[in-house]
């Protein structure tokens, strides 16, 4: 694809300041949409209705989807709001705000559906849809993870397999980061 104003707009993107962000399989498109909308929702000046209220409602829907509480009807509402915001907002901010949603719904709709139907985030970015587990096969009981856990839910004794108490885990990912044996798995 040619990197120019026209072709990018056609593909549902914008040139913006000319920067380009490369995403991979490890990025969740729903989470990316939410990231951009959080920015525009915060930046909305509040003058016109579709941007002020619409971005807030869209963000609420995306939060619902990424937390695993989404329903398929949410996607219709999201699309309807996104088009409304794009067509009726007063300025460029509101008109461009729903772009990430509309293009990701167009090209990566299956990711949204996966979040809603399977309650799964394939890229393992949506915190509410993942959990951390310690593999009994890999853990050597080095004890590094336990003192790094802020909620003290990772427990175990030396040279024994450690376990995470899922009820108390806040999914901060500290154990995942500090484990030198890749025994902590994000699932």
């Amino acid at each position: 694809m040619e990197v120019d104003f026209g072709p990018l707009a056609k593909a549902g993107s914008i040139m913006g300041s000319g920067g380009m962000i490369v995403l991979s399989e490890e990025d969740c498109m729903v989470d990316i949409s939410k990231f951009y909308l959080t920015f525009t929702q915060e930046e909305s000046c509040g003058k016109c209705t579709p941007c002020r209220e619409g971005t807030t409602r869209m963000l609420e829907i995306l939060e619902k989807v990424t937390s695993g509480k989404g329903e398929m009807s949410d996607l219709d509402r999201l699309e309807r709001l996104a088009k409304l915001c794009q067509q009726t907002s007063l300025c460029g901010l509101g008109r461009a705000a729903p772009n990430p949603i509309l293009s990701s719904l167009k090209h990566f709709r299956e990711e949204y559906v996966e979040h809603i139907v399977d309650k799964k985030c394939a890229a393992k970015k949506c915190v509410a849809l993942i959990k951390y587990e310690i593999s009994a096969d890999t853990c050597i009981g080095c004890t590094v993870c336990a003192p790094n856990c802020p909620t003290e839910c990772t427990t175990g004794t030396r040279k024994e397999v450690h376990v995470i108490d899922q009820d108390r885990c806040v999914k901060c990912g500290q154990c995942f980061e500090v484990c030198r044996f890749d025994a902590v798995e994000r699932v």
Partner: peptide, 8 residues
């Protein structure tokens, strides 16, 4: 108007 966005 005071504040911005949703909190105006």
């Amino acid at each position: 108007q005071h504040g911005r966005g949703f909190h105006t």
